[in-house]
Amino acid sequence: MTLALRAMTQLAAWPDLSEARPGCGTGRALRSDRAEILHFHSDHEVDLHLTARAIRRYEDHLRSTGAVRMVPGSRWVTVRLEVDSDIHLLLTLVSVALQSHQAWPVPDDSVPADCNEHRGAALPRTILSGS
């Protein structure tokens, strides 16, 4: 079982998430009653929808992990699933996303554009971390 499938299986059991068609048309998605939260695009990449406030609050932490790719101006972050600990990171970030979207609409947040799927492939962890 791939890491993405394991993560999808765990998250699909969360009561605040349900499976949906991804707005980008690629892969599988999970959404809350307020917004699309996750797009599973491959066995190793997941796009996660955060609010602008959540991205600002956790930006330093998001940038410091090699498993996360941020695209300037996007409310989506791409999480690269390569090791088991990446699933734990994803679960934590999904919890942050769900809590962030509880306050939707947030005055300084706009409706997000498409996820990061068509904005280029995520770089491998070794390139992101500089090793």
Rank of each mutant, 00 (worst) to 15 (best):
R119P: 02
V94I: 03
P112T: 04
E82V: 06
L3V: 06
A97V: 05
P15F: 02
I87Y: 00
E19C: 07
L48H: 06
D43K: 04
L98Q: 12
E36L: 08
V46I: 11
M8C: 04
M70V: 03
S42D: 14
D86S: 05
G23E: 15
L48R: 01
W76V: 03
M70G: 05
L11C: 10
V46L: 07
D86W: 04
M1S: 12
D109C: 15
A113P: 01
D86C: 00
P124D: 07
R28I: 12
G25I: 07
S85F: 06
G23S: 09
N116Q: 10
A121K: 11
L62Y: 10
D84G: 10
D60Q: 09
L81T: 11
A103V: 09
G130T: 08
A4H: 04
S18M: 10
L89Y: 00
T2R: 02
E82A: 13
T26Q: 12
R28S: 10
T26E: 14
R125I: 14
A103K: 13
R125Q: 02
P107Y: 09
L5Q: 14
L128Q: 10
V83F: 09
R56Y: 08
V94T: 13
P15I: 07
I55M: 06
R63T: 03
T9F: 11
V68K: 01
G73I: 05
M8T: 01
R28L: 14
R57Q: 13
E45G: 00
H49P: 02
A54G: 03
G25A: 05
A29H: 10
D60P: 00
T26G: 01
L128E: 08
S42C: 06
A54Y: 01
V46C: 06
T65N: 10
D84R: 10
R75S: 15
L128R: 15
T65E: 09
S42L: 04
G130N: 07
S64A: 15
S42Q: 08
Q10F: 12
L90G: 04
V46Q: 00
L48T: 08
R53D: 15
S85W: 07
D108W: 08
G120P: 01
L123Q: 14
P72R: 05
R31P: 02
Q102E: 15
S64C: 13
R119C: 11
V83N: 00
A13E: 15
T2L: 01
T65M: 09
A103S: 14
L11I: 12
S74F: 08
V83D: 07
G25S: 04
R34D: 07
L50H: 09
V71F: 11
D109A: 08
R21P: 03
T92S: 15
Q99L: 12
S32R: 05
L128S: 06
T26N: 09
D109T: 12
H49S: 13
S32H: 06
A52E: 11
T51C: 03
R75F: 01
S129N: 08
H39W: 00
V46D: 03
P105G: 04
Y58D: 13
E59L: 14
V111A: 06
D109W: 00
A13P: 04
A103E: 14
G73M: 04
N116P: 02
G27V: 07
L90Q: 02
S42V: 02
A52D: 12
R21T: 13
D84Y: 03
W76F: 11
L17G: 08
A122D: 05
C24W: 03
R75N: 15
R125M: 07
V71N: 08
S129K: 09
